[in-house]
């Protein structure tokens, strides 16, 4: 039994996958907290679509090598983040509309380019990812991005906190909300580009929103929410990957399902979950009943 449990750990490609799952889970979980509280979670999904034209053009111009595709995706993502951020600040378009307008256009253009450039197998690889096919280069790339995300969070904790809680007050303190906002969007892009190989574009949203939502339902402090989202992201994704091995199920969906299972359990049993609400409602009803009896 124990041998079966630890069997996957004897394979280097599984260990590489576990490392990437852990690192990506932490980075996505932390960034997801900002997206969740700024009501921007769908942006992570939209970014995935926006990367398609970049991947397609890089494939056409630079060939199927991974580095070229990452470069194309990164440039497309950064440009989209910049343009959508500016669209929102310099036009009267609300942020979600600015993103939606840009991303749906990118997705359409991306599909046209990709159909010309790639085989269906290549396309599926980037849409759904394959974490067990990761190389050591992927591990180092993921480690660099995850470390940069955590380091940036530590260095700019205060402006990031203010931007999420009260962006106007950030301005009153001499900060630049637009700069901080663009920084968060760039972090999202960098993480999604890194996650291309492991997670794919389609399921990337789950890595951002599920750990953050789970932590949000359990925490009353911003710092604990960030810590918990990072830990849930890393641990649940790793557990999902191991489960996919034991059950012989596809790894990408299994990792997202594990993140989802934690989120669902927090939705029910978390500090601000359904059980707590039900208890609070029952407590209020009991109290008002006691008061009525007294009067």
């Amino acid at each position: 039994m124990a041998e079966e449990l630890f069997a996957p750990l004897t394979h280097p490609f599984v260990l590489r996958g576990l490392l990437i799952a852990w690192l990506l889970g932490v980075a996505c979980g932390v960034i997801g907290c900002f997206l969740l509280l700024r009501r921007l979670v769908l942006i992570a999904d939209s970014f995935g679509h926006a990367l398609l034209p970049g991947i397609g053009l890089a494939y056409l111009w630079l060939g199927p090598g991974h580095s070229g595709l990452y470069l194309g995706a990164a440039i497309a993502g950064l440009l989209t983040a910049l343009i959508s951020g500016l669209l929102q600040h310099v036009t009267r378009l609300p942020e979600d509309a600015a993103f939606a307008a840009l991303f749906v256009l990118c997705f359409a253009v991306g599909l046209i380019i990709l159909q010309q450039a790639m085989t269906p197998t290549d396309l599926l690889h980037y849409l759904f990812g394959d974490i067990l096919a990761s190389t050591m280069d992927d591990v180092w790339r993921t480690w660099a991005v995850a470390s940069a995300v955590v380091l940036a969070l530590c260095l700019w904790y205060r402006p990031l906190l203010l931007e999420a809680f009260d962006a106007t007050f950030l301005r009153a303190c001499g900060g630049r909300p637009l700069l901080v906002h663009l920084g968060v969007l760039f972090a999202v892009v960098a993480t999604i580009v890194t996650a291309l190989q492991a997670v794919g574009l389609v399921l990337a949203l789950g890595w951002f929103v599920l750990p953050a939502a789970a932590a949000y339902l359990c925490c009353d402090r911003w710092s604990s929410m960030l810590l918990m989202a990072g830990l849930i992201g890393g641990m649940a994704a790793s557990a999902g990957l191991l489960a996919s091995w034991w059950l012989d199920w596809p790894s990408g969906p299994c990792m997202v399902a594990a993140l989802g299972a934690v989120c669902l359990s927090c939705m029910v049993g978390g500090r601000h979950g359904l059980r707590a609400r039900w208890r609070s409602a029952r407590h209020d009803a009991d109290e008002s009943g006691t008061r009525c009896e007294r009067t």
Partner: peptide
């Protein structure tokens, strides 16, 4: 009110 309505902060 510019603040996030249910931000987890004390």
């Amino acid at each position: 009110r510019q603040q996030h309505g249910s931000f987890p902060i004390d």
